[in-house]
């Protein structure tokens, strides 16, 4: 594998990690708020808090990792994306900041009393952040960032009037809710919390069909936006078919209320196939037509240094991630809310 491909594969994998963990977090925020409006609060709030509290900070790191890594491996992306995305990027930072900080204030500072304003903020940012981030995927297809001479411009009109932008936003929103509901159903089942499971399972089923519908819509819109990319997607259509099969498996398992661990693995595979299929067919471009992974790759020495640092970093990171998952995800006592009592 060449350095150029290794670099983008690493970044894409971490972004996939972010997609999964952040979706769970974002969707949970929305469900918390939505469940209050529909009078289900007490049923699902605890289960959401128990999962989110220890891991929320880790979620943010996946994002930072991607941004810093992207600029490290492909310094040109700082120039094009950095210049063009000042406004949307800043808005995303503000939303992330409000969400992160108020989550911490509420969880650690308030002793469990949930103010409505906080929950509304938390729910709203949970939908707005993925909407903002997803538009970068639309921008990367080209036609919105434009270089004229030495300057880089962002074409707001093209951006806002482009149906592809909106199809990606729609896909992001429904995917967030679908992934989150699927995960939380699994978590509630593990916790033996049947009322919460009932509500969350309903959400999961409710958002499953819109996910597939939005995927098809986005798929078709790529054809209009960037036909060459669409053709490459068709060439590797097996990945998208595999994704669909995983979707069917996941939905039927949650429907039957069986093997929910496998069910969530199927959800992750569903998105993994689609994510890597999309990413692979997007290559060699990071931003069409200005940044491609070969011309914009950093110098060879830095490439080797970054990949070495990454490999060493994984040696520390993977055991740490396994530990946190073991303690809060797979420890039945914790999941059921019995933590605090000494183990064994």
């Amino acid at each position: 594998m060449s350095f150029e491909i290794a670099g983008i594969a690493i970044l894409w994998t971490f972004l996939f990690g972010y997609l999964i963990v952040a979706s769970i977090d974002f969707g949970a925020g929305f469900f918390s708020f939505y469940s209050i409006l529909t009078g289900h609060e007490n049923k699902i709030h605890n289960i959401i808090q128990r999962y989110l509290s220890p891991v929320w900070e880790v979620t943010n790191v996946f994002l930072i990792f991607f941004v810093v890594g992207l600029v490290g491996f492909y310094p040109d992306s700082a120039f094009f994306y950095g210049t063009a995305l000042l406004v949307p990027g800043s808005l995303a930072i503000v939303l992330l900041a409000i969400r992160g900080v108020y989550y911490a204030y509420n969880t650690y500072g308030n002793h469990g009393k949930n103010s409505r304003i906080y929950l509304a903020l938390y729910g709203a940012t949970g939908l707005l952040i993925p909407a903002v981030f997803s538009t970068i995927l639309a921008i990367s297809e080209g036609g919105i960032i434009e270089q004229v001479g030495e300057k880089v411009f962002f074409r707001w009109r093209e951006f806002l009037t482009n149906p592809y932008t909106w199809s990606v936003v729609l896909l992001a929103l429904v995917s967030v809710l679908y992934i989150s509901a699927m995960f939380l159903s699994y978590y509630a089942k593990r916790a033996g919390d049947e009322p919460a499971f009932g509500v969350l399972r309903e959400y999961a089923l409710l958002w499953s069909l819109p996910t597939i519908f939005a995927s098809f819509l986005a798929f078709l819109q790529i054809n209009k936006q960037n036909p060459a990319h669409f053709e490459r997607m068709v060439d590797m259509s097996w990945m998208f078919i595999a994704s669909f099969i995983c979707f069917v498996i996941a939905v039927s398992l949650v429907w039957k209320e069986k093997y929910l661990g496998w069910c969530f693995i199927a959800v992750m595979l569903q998105f993994a196939f689609a994510w890597y299929g999309y990413g692979r067919s997007h290559l060699p471009y990071i931003l069409y037509p200005y940044i491609n992974i070969y011309d914009s790759f950093t110098n060879r020495t830095m490439g080797i240094a970054l990949i070495t640092a990454f490999s060493l970093g994984l040696l520390v990171l993977i055991p740490s991630l396994v530990l946190i998952m073991k303690l809060f995800l797979f420890d039945a006592n914790y999941v059921r809310g019995n933590a605090g009592k000494k183990k064994g």
Binding site: V58, I64, V68, G69, G72, P75, A309, G313, L317
Partner: peptide
């Protein structure tokens, strides 16, 4: 880019 990249790992472990 190297120390910036390594910082994210340190941050990961801390978090």
């Amino acid at each position: 880019a190297l120390p910036l990249f390594m910082e994210t790992f340190a941050f990961f472990v801390e978090a």
